[in-house]
Structure formats: structure tokens, C-alpha cells
Amino acid sequence: MAEPNSQKLKHEQIQYIEFLSKDIVQAKAFYTKCFGWKFTDYGAAYTAFAGDYVDGGFTYGEPVNGTVLVILYTEDIEATKNKVISAGGTIVKDIFSFPGGKRFQFTDLDGYELAVWTE
């Protein structure tokens, strides 16, 4: 993930959005031109972006309507994971490390997939 702005880090708020893109270079050019987003590449298959009020990333894949991944920030990843489980959510990717922190992914009761991250 792009380096987060510490003023934006609020417990369990939506923090980051990931998109699938079949052409990351094209996506970067489009969003730079439209919104002035700044990009940081993490290999050929992932780029993170930072805008004035949104951070996110593009990962290589075939875009499908409904595949945007909403990512929430937490101060306590274990406690938030336990709350998701106790509310009936299903963990689909257990806690893992990545450059910048840790995260897990879950589906809600309607089957929507979201993620939670921490530094």
C-alpha cells in the first residue's frame, strides 16, 4: 500500500480501495491525467496510488463489475478479525504481511469481500 497519511488513519474506517486492471500502465495514465494520483509500483502486477482523499491500488486481473476491494484500517487487527468472525463473516485470507503492514480479507453475509489492514 502507499504510505498512509497518519492524519487519515482512523480505527475501522474505509482506508484503501483496490481495483483489478488488465492494463496497469493504462490505468496509471488515466488516473494521473484525470485526478493527479501519484503511483508507487510494487513489481509489474501491482501499483499503489495516493490521491488527495483516497489511497488504493491496481492489481493485475480481468476487471469484473463488483470486484473493487474496499480496505478498512484497524488499530488492532486480531480484535477486528474476531469481531468479523463473531458477526458471521468468513475469513477468506487469514492475516498476512505485505510491505507496509498486515491484513486479512473476509466476506460479509451477502458475500461481499472486504479487507482490513494495520501498520
Rank of each mutant, 00 (worst) to 15 (best):
E3C: 05
N5R: 15
N5E: 14
S6W: 04
Q7L: 11
K8P: 05
L9K: 15
H11L: 00
E12D: 14
Q13N: 09
Q13F: 11
Q15F: 11
I17G: 10
I17P: 10
I17E: 03
E18V: 09
S21M: 01
S21G: 03
D23F: 02
I24C: 14
V25T: 14
V25A: 15
V25K: 13
K28L: 08
A29R: 14
F30D: 01
K33E: 15
K33T: 13
C34G: 04
F35A: 11
G36E: 12
W37K: 08
W37N: 07
K38H: 13
F39Y: 12
T40R: 15
A44H: 09
A44N: 13
A45G: 10
T47W: 00
A48N: 04
A48C: 10
A48R: 07
F49Q: 09
G51H: 13
D52A: 10
D52V: 10
V54M: 11
D55N: 14
D55R: 10
G56T: 09
G57M: 02
F58R: 06
T59R: 07
Y60F: 11
Y60N: 08
G61Q: 00
E62V: 00
E62D: 06
V64W: 02
N65R: 14
N65F: 11
N65C: 04
T67A: 10
T67C: 13
T67Y: 13
V70C: 02
I71Q: 13
Y73H: 12
T74A: 10
E75C: 03
D76R: 05
D76A: 09
I77C: 07
I77Y: 11
I77E: 05
A79C: 01
K81C: 05
K81I: 07
N82C: 06
V84F: 02
I85C: 06
I85N: 07
S86K: 15
G88K: 05
G88M: 06
G89C: 03
G89T: 01
G89W: 04
G89V: 01
I91T: 04
K93R: 08
D94P: 04
D94V: 07
D94L: 06
D94K: 08
S97Y: 07
F98M: 15
P99A: 06
G100F: 05
R103D: 10
R103V: 03
F104V: 00
Q105G: 06
T107W: 02
D108A: 07
L109E: 02
L109S: 09
L109C: 08
G111R: 05
G111I: 02
A115S: 12
A115F: 00
